[in-house]
């Protein structure tokens, strides 16, 4: 169970420039009768505008940590803040609003809605924010153009290549102008050229718009460009290096 008292104390000292802060975070999954510890007592602070890579072998807890930061999952123990919001204190609906307005997601398997076209997938989050149809259409189109997807706007995900789909995912994550983007192995399913282009886009958005990026990766090229690399092993942070 989350420790609310600890959350209140930690929250009082939270730096206003801090994008993400997690304290003593643990996650234990129940698989049948067996308990699997995915994350053990992890504490981490990521400042606004940082470009942070989570690295480590498979099963080290990278994706679990991203899911907990992104309010997609609930920790077994520990506290989380995104900006000044303590996630443990929020209801399901409040968490949904937080994800909508502050966080952008890039999933490893793209996770586009299959019945919506590329532009509709990007528009979707803008519609959730209640933006008028004309404006959202313009912004979605601009986001797709920025990622080199001109001509693909009205195609369904099944009609796009893997790289194109991943770029649509990035456009969808960026279009609502979040303060934080969480990306799970964003280049894992891409060829090296497409991966490099995607990394360049992410770096450019980080520099130009000051968006905080936290991403998990196995890709050495991505790791090289990360300003901060946090290494996880067996659910614990074993190294935290800033270049």
């Amino acid at each position: 169970m989350p420790n609310h008292k600890a959350a209140a104390t930690a929250g009082a000292t939270t730096d206003t420039t801090m994008a993400v802060r997690v304290v003593d975070l643990s996650k234990i999954y129940q698989q049948g009768t067996i308990e699997v510890t995915a994350l053990q007592h992890v504490s981490l602070e990521v400042a606004a505008g940082e470009f942070t890579a989570l690295v480590g072998p498979s099963g080290s807890g990278k994706t679990t940590l991203l899911n907990l930061i992104g309010a997609l999952d609930v920790p077994t123990v520990g506290e989380r803040w995104v900006g000044e919001e303590s996630l443990n204190a929020l209801s399901r609906a409040q968490l949904a609003r937080l994800r909508l307005h502050k966080i952008g997601f890039v999933f490893q398997d793209y996770s586009l809605l299959p019945v919506l076209t590329a532009i509709e997938n990007v528009e979707y989050v803008l519609q959730l924010q209640g933006i008028a149809s004309q404006e959202r259409r313009q912004r979605a189109n601009a986001a797709l153009l920025e990622l080199g997807l001109d001509g693909c706007q009205h195609r369904l995900p099944t009609q796009l290549s893997g790289g194109q789909q991943q770029r649509v995912t990035i456009a969808r994550a960026m279009v609502a102008e979040p303060v934080l983007v969480l990306a799970d192995e964003p280049t894992a399913n891409l060829d090296s050229d497409t991966g490099a282009a995607l990394l360049a886009t992410m770096l450019e958005l980080n520099c130009r718009k000051g968006i905080t990026f936290i991403f998990s990766t196995h890709d050495p090229m991505v790791m090289r460009h990360a300003k901060r690399v946090v290494r996880l092993q067996d659910g614990r942070i074993v190294e935290d290096k800033t270049s």
Binding site: G70, L72, R92, A93, A96, R97, L98, R99, L100, H101, I103, F105, F107, S111, L112, L113, P114, Y124, V125, L128, R172
Partner: peptide, 16 residues
Amino acid sequence: TREFGIMLALGSSPSL
């Protein structure tokens, strides 16, 4: 189910 997961992850409210 997976698509609903995506929608919820993107910030869709349960009521939506």
